[in-house]
């Protein structure tokens, strides 16, 4: 029971990080029908920027821990959003009318470029986050767990809820949904689709960058290649929930996190990374539309 509880909560924490990244994939896919392979690297940029800002400004000494983290999060998310917008302008916009494969290759190229740029700046070795957070535990449902784990889940869920409300209730959110359903019709209704794409490339990377910061703070260790595996798992989460579907990405992320944690604990730790891919393949065979999504498979 003890172990089960720890694994589930741990899975929820990891899963909420997957969900945050998955939102970026799912929003971009929803509007552009493009798998943004560089999204995982934007997540890594968030982690590295967070580390640099944390160590160079020592915000927590000046502002107090809570305020420092908020300022840090805003800075990281803002900077990663800027990178995201540049990425879209440079690598994806020129290919908007091209065949899908061209955009996929360009996205891969962008991913390789971003990853190696990071390696040239920081070197190929692991980087360690400064120890700023208290290592306390809290009691939850009669069990002890690290306060950070709870914080990661709460922060992610709050952000996701805010995003959901934004997309459902505001005018801009309506424009995003309209562009996702039918770009041509959206344009006829007076929606500036290019602006919608830019907004999507602000929100997605900002969330991905924020997830990177959370991973840095939570695990303390980051590497320049970590974006790939996180990205693949987040993408799995997005498909699991139904790609293009925002609540789906959240559900998919949390579910995948828990499945992975339980699989690693009770089946085999060595196969941990394979579970996500297995889930991905199974869901695409059995229910390619995802748990909450549209239908995607072609007829044979």
């Amino acid at each position: 029971m003890e172990q089960f509880f720890q694994q589930v909560t741990n899975g929820l924490a990891v899963g909420s990080i997957y969900a945050l990244i998955a939102l970026g994939y799912t929003m971009v896919y929803g509007v552009l029908r493009l798998i943004n392979f560089a999204h995982g690297d934007l997540f890594t940029y968030g982690a590295y920027l967070g580390m640099t800002l944390l160590t160079s400004f020592l915000l927590h000494d000046h502002l107090g821990l809570a305020l420092a983290l908020v300022v840090l999060a805003v800075m990281v998310m803002g900077l990663v959003a800027v990178i995201g917008v540049i990425l879209e302008r440079a690598a994806y916009r020129p290919l908007r009318e091209s065949p899908r494969l061209s955009a996929v290759v360009s996205a891969l190229g962008a991913s390789i470029f971003l990853q190696n740029a990071l390696m040239l700046v920081y070197g190929a070795r692991y980087q360690v986050y400064p120890d700023v957070l208290p290592q306390t535990t809290v009691s939850f449902l009669g069990q002890q767990m690290p306060v950070m784990r709870l914080a990661v889940v709460l922060v992610s869920v709050t952000i996701m809820a805010a995003l959901y409300l934004f997309v459902q209730k505001t005018k801009v959110g309506t424009a995003i949904r309209a562009a996702a359903i039918d770009q041509g019709a959206a344009r006829l209704m007076g929606i500036d689709v290019n602006k919608v794409v830019t907004i999507v490339f602000v929100i997605g990377p900002a969330l991905g960058g924020g997830a990177g910061l959370l991973v840095g703070l939570y695990y303390g260790q980051i590497s320049f290649t970590m974006g790939w595996i996180y990205g693949m798992k987040a993408f799995t989460a997005a498909i699991l929930g139904g790609i293009g579907n925002i609540p789906g990405a959240m559900v998919g992320g949390l579910l995948l996190g828990v499945v992975e944690a339980l699989g690693a604990a009770y089946l085999s730790i060595a196969w941990k990374d394979a579970f996500a891919f297995l889930v991905l393949i199974l869901i695409l065979i059995v229910r390619p539309s995802g748990l909450l999504g549209e239908r995607v498979a072609e007829k044979v």
């Binding site: 693949m232 891919f277 393949i281």
Partner: peptide
């Protein structure tokens, strides 16, 4: 999986490749 739409097949084959490696 062969009936899957272009980029879905891409992702599935990435997954297959990784499973084989693992």
């Amino acid at each position: 999986v062969v009936h899957l739409r272009g980029d879905y097949l891409l992702v599935v084959t990435i997954g297959l490749g990784e499973i084989v490696r693992i």
